[in-house]
Amino acid sequence: MIAATVTGHVWATRRIDGLPPGAFLEVQPDGSGSHLIAFDVLGSGLGERVLVAQGSVAASWFPGTPPPVDALIIGSIDADSTEQQQ
């Protein structure tokens, strides 16, 4: 799993059949200058910290024949309680 921050939206007007409702988001993994595109079914927003699964783990989440998605947002990272107190 990768901890990352949502940095943007990718607008896709056409999608393959069988892809559930969701959005393609650009995320930046923590401690990295790189970006990747992840499929989001949670409704994550810009600036939100998320958990991303990649590869066969991400693809196996989809029922039936998995679509060609190799990065999936699987969780939202809540703020650390020590950060909230400051």
Results as ranks from 00 to 15, higher is better:
residue 1 M to I: 11
residue 2 I to V: 08
residue 2 I to S: 03
residue 4 A to D: 00
residue 4 A to Q: 05
residue 4 A to C: 06
residue 5 T to N: 03
residue 6 V to M: 08
residue 7 T to H: 01
residue 7 T to Q: 04
residue 8 G to R: 06
residue 9 H to Q: 10
residue 9 H to F: 15
residue 10 V to L: 15
residue 13 T to L: 13
residue 13 T to M: 08
residue 13 T to F: 13
residue 14 R to V: 15
residue 17 D to Y: 06
residue 17 D to Q: 13
residue 22 G to N: 07
residue 22 G to P: 02
residue 22 G to T: 08
residue 22 G to Y: 04
residue 23 A to P: 00
residue 25 L to M: 11
residue 25 L to Y: 01
residue 26 E to F: 14
residue 28 Q to Y: 00
residue 29 P to N: 09
residue 29 P to R: 14
residue 29 P to Y: 11
residue 31 G to Y: 09
residue 32 S to A: 14
residue 33 G to E: 14
residue 33 G to A: 15
residue 34 S to N: 12
residue 35 H to I: 14
residue 35 H to E: 05
residue 36 L to S: 07
residue 36 L to I: 14
residue 37 I to E: 10
residue 37 I to P: 01
residue 37 I to T: 15
residue 39 F to K: 09
residue 40 D to T: 09
residue 40 D to S: 12
residue 42 L to C: 07
residue 43 G to P: 07
residue 43 G to M: 10
residue 44 S to H: 06
residue 46 L to N: 04
residue 47 G to F: 10
residue 49 R to L: 07
residue 49 R to G: 02
residue 50 V to W: 03
residue 50 V to D: 12
residue 51 L to Y: 02
residue 51 L to K: 02
residue 52 V to E: 04
residue 54 Q to F: 00
residue 55 G to V: 05
residue 55 G to K: 10
residue 57 V to H: 02
residue 58 A to T: 04
residue 58 A to Y: 04
residue 59 A to L: 10
residue 60 S to L: 06
residue 60 S to A: 15
residue 60 S to I: 01
residue 61 W to H: 13
residue 63 P to G: 09
residue 63 P to V: 08
residue 64 G to S: 12
residue 65 T to F: 05
residue 66 P to Y: 13
residue 69 V to A: 10
residue 69 V to I: 15
residue 69 V to M: 08
residue 70 D to G: 02
residue 70 D to Q: 05
residue 71 A to P: 03
residue 72 L to A: 10
residue 73 I to C: 00
residue 74 I to W: 03
residue 76 S to T: 13
residue 76 S to G: 08
residue 77 I to H: 01
residue 77 I to D: 02
residue 80 D to C: 01
residue 81 S to T: 11
residue 82 T to N: 06
residue 82 T to A: 14
residue 83 E to M: 11
residue 85 Q to K: 11
